[in-house]
């Protein structure tokens, strides 16, 4: 029955209806169905677009980077490499300890610095500095880096990530704000 009705309902055949009643109601039902489906598609877009926009809002290439201070220059004696901690520039009230980010500061001489990310370039584990052998070692898969951050041995594909830095008003500042990865090294 429904098959027949649909045929006549689409209006392509000008067959006389076999019975008088059903035809107009069927085509009306069809119209309502299409209208209903169309309205729902529209409604779906109305909700779907904002939902996707909300969920994918962080799917962007840029991370907000700001100059943050690592403290007074005198904290970093020449020829030494020391752990420093900075506040992530973007914070939320419930960040807890996670907004404090560590990094390694090497003061080569005078105002020449190198600031390395704590994250191993292999898979992001925290590398540790060994003053005696002047090496960074990673506890996860055994990556090793020289004191200038270059790759010494093990699986890491490159040397340590370096932050851009500058000396301003007697303070060492770095451009912080993102977790360095191979896709976004600084």
């Amino acid at each position: 029955m429904s098959g027949n009705n649909q045929k006549s309902g689409c209006g392509c055949n000008k067959l006389a209806p076999t019975e008088d009643a059903p035809v107009p109601s069927v085509s009306r039902r069809n119209l309502l169905l299409k209208l209903g489906a169309g309205l729902n598609a529209l409604a779906g877009l109305l909700i779907g677009v904002p939902v996707f926009g909300y969920v994918l809002s962080t799917f962007s290439k840029n991370s907000p980077r700001t100059w943050v201070s690592l403290g007074d220059l005198n904290h970093f004696p020449e020829g030494n490499t020391r752990l420093a901690v900075f506040q992530n520039p973007v914070t939320k009230p419930w960040d807890g300890d996670t907004n404090e980010v560590p990094c390694w500061v090497r003061r080569v001489e005078g105002e020449r610095f190198q600031v390395f990310a704590i994250n191993c370039t292999h898979l992001g584990c925290p590398v540790r500095w060994f003053q005696q052998s002047r090496l960074f070692m990673c506890p996860c898969h055994g990556g090793v880096f020289y004191e200038d951050g270059s790759h010494a041995s093990g699986p890491p594909p490159r040397g340590l990530f370096e932050y851009q830095h500058k000396v301003e008003g007697g303070e060492l500042k770095i451009l912080g704000g993102n977790l360095p990865t191979l896709a976004e090294p600084t």
Binding site: T58, F59, P64, N88, V90, T98, N178, T181, E184
Partner: peptide, 21 residues
């Protein structure tokens, strides 16, 4: 390590550019 959209995926995964709130 994902080519082209690596940075975006990192941000999507972490809900931002660092591990935080």
């Amino acid at each position: 390590r994902v080519p082209f959209i690596g940075a975006q995926l990192v941000h999507l995964m972490l809900a931002g550019s660092i591990i935080a709130g």
